[in-house]
Amino acid sequence: MTDAQLKGRRPIFWISVGAGLVALILLAVALADGFGRDPREPENIANQGAKIDMTRVLPLLDGTGDVAFSELEGKIIVINFWASYCIPCRAEHEVLTTASEQYRDQNVQFLGIVFHDDPDAARDFLDTLGWGDGYLYAEDPGARATVDFGVWGVPETYFVDATGTIVDKHYGAITRDDLIPVLESILAGDSAG
């Protein structure tokens, strides 16, 4: 050991200790921030406020023709991406169909888009769990709508207001408590504006 080392600690030592502590606290806070959050669900919605493509036309799942987004112009649209193999989709199915009936008369259109699924399997799913009344179910050939909406996985639910703007998005199975407040606030905003 040299004399210089015995004499005491150089400023660089205390700078390192300080820097180390700051790094440690940052690490702890950043890591702790992740608790209780599903890493699959980003906090911010990338396409919130974006206009959706109103020229899109999708074939209806029941084979009765197409749904053209242009016909939905001026309506509030709730778009739910789902698949027959998706377990949470079963859980939210009733929430969506019930809400669809409840808001039918308030200019709200529910639209279910099948996400990477065999149409027959999707129809079986609805035959079992029930086709929502006035609810539109559409296929997504080539997954173009899926990509255009930026769907990370099923189920995902988008709320589009009467101007065709994405107002909100919900990841995973949606509950009544998630759905109603968002719809009500869109409706309130509409009547106000």
Binding site: N44, A46, N47, T146, G150, W152
Partner: peptide, 30 residues
């Protein structure tokens, strides 16, 4: 499906940054 979209946009002459931007606008930086 996404790769198809990329291919279409390359075909349409978009730049790399434009194409990445297209996906970022929809899915986020993630």
């Amino acid at each position: 499906a996404m790769l198809d979209v990329v291919a279409e946009k390359v075909e349409a002459g978009q730049t790399d940054e434009q194409i990445l931007e297209y996906f970022t606008d929809r899915y986020g930086d993630g």
